[in-house]
């Protein structure tokens, strides 16, 4: 009987944990004609191009038990890119430009200076609890007119882990 009970609780635990902390991203980043300006004939692009609009990252939980009983759960976010069409000369960099909104104890650290987004997952920033609308900006470097007229596309993937 007691083993059955133990297994039942364990199974219940699994069910409860089916919805861990989640990360969502709002906004879109597109570098197009408006960004690629050449002020005078004979010039190349600027060394770096920053995205005009920010992307907002939110850390949430669908688990009410977590929200109530573990409001300061530590987490970390890693970033990786999955290229659709890309040229390795072009570097994509990411930075966190703000704290977002959350409980005053929910401090975020890391990611406040530009770091290269690679094809292998790397640490971006960490924090605790639920935080919404953390602004994130992207920057391109290594672009040149010599690359020619073409389109590049990559998926930037943010993954949240318990920390």
């Amino acid at each position: 009987m007691k083993y059955t009970l133990a297994l039942a609780f364990l199974f219940l635990g699994l069910l409860v944990n089916a919805q861990p902390m989640t990360v969502t991203v709002d906004g879109e980043v597109s570098f197009d004609g408006a960004n690629f300006t050449i002020s005078e004939a004979g010039e190349d692009f600027a060394a770096t191009l920053e995205s005009e609009s920010s992307v907002f990252v939110s850390v949430n939980s669908d688990d009410n038990w977590d929200k109530k009983n573990n409001p300061n759960q530590k987490w970390k976010i890693e970033v990786v890119k999955e290229d659709l069409v890309w040229n390795d000369i072009v570097q994509l960099e990411i930075v966190r430009t703000g704290q977002g909104y959350g409980d005053k104890n929910n401090q975020i650290s890391g990611g406040s200076s530009y770091q290269v987004v690679n094809n292998t997952s790397t640490f971006f920033f960490s924090g605790r609890g639920l935080v919404t609308d953390i602004p994130v900006q992207l920057r391109l470097s290594g672009l040149s007119v010599t690359l020619g007229a073409q389109d590049f596309e990559t998926n930037v993937l943010l993954t949240i882990y318990d920390n």
């Binding site: 861990p20 902390m21 989640t22 990360v23 969502t24 991203v25 906004g27 879109e28 980043v29 597109s30 570098f31 197009d32 992307v55 990252v57 890119k81 999955e82 994509l92 992207l138 389109d151 590049f152 596309e153 990559t154 998926n155 930037v156 993937l157 943010l158 993954t159 949240i160």
Partner: peptide, 8 residues
Amino acid sequence: KNAEHKAS
């Protein structure tokens, strides 16, 4: 858990 967005 992860989330992604496209950069073009």
